[in-house]
Amino acid sequence: MNNILNHIGIENYIFLSVILFCIGVFGVLYRRNAIIVFMSIEIMLNAVNLLFVAFSTYHQDAQGQVFVFFSMAVAAAEVAVGLAILVSIFRNLGSIDIDNLKKLKG
């Protein structure tokens, strides 16, 4: 089988996924818009998914890809629920700036 890893080394996948992950982290930390925070989380999630797939191929083991399917399915569900919450927050407060969401204050 023609292994794609022969052309592009595994390190490149790792670098890419680390970069994606970090972008996600910074997005989560710096942005105030809940939707963007949400998207950043998705980026982090996908960075991990990418890594899964890469290593799956590297090890010649399909299990990694199975995991990816799972996590994609879960992520989809999570987005559905999360967005629904955001919509309802927006309806109530007229904003989805996370600085305004302090109802959890102990």
Binding site: V37, I98, L101, G106
Partner: peptide, 17 residues
Amino acid sequence: GRKVQNGNIGLYLFFFV
């Protein structure tokens, strides 16, 4: 301890990271 639980999601996320 209560001061940390100020409801600021950004702070929560920061601690998470």
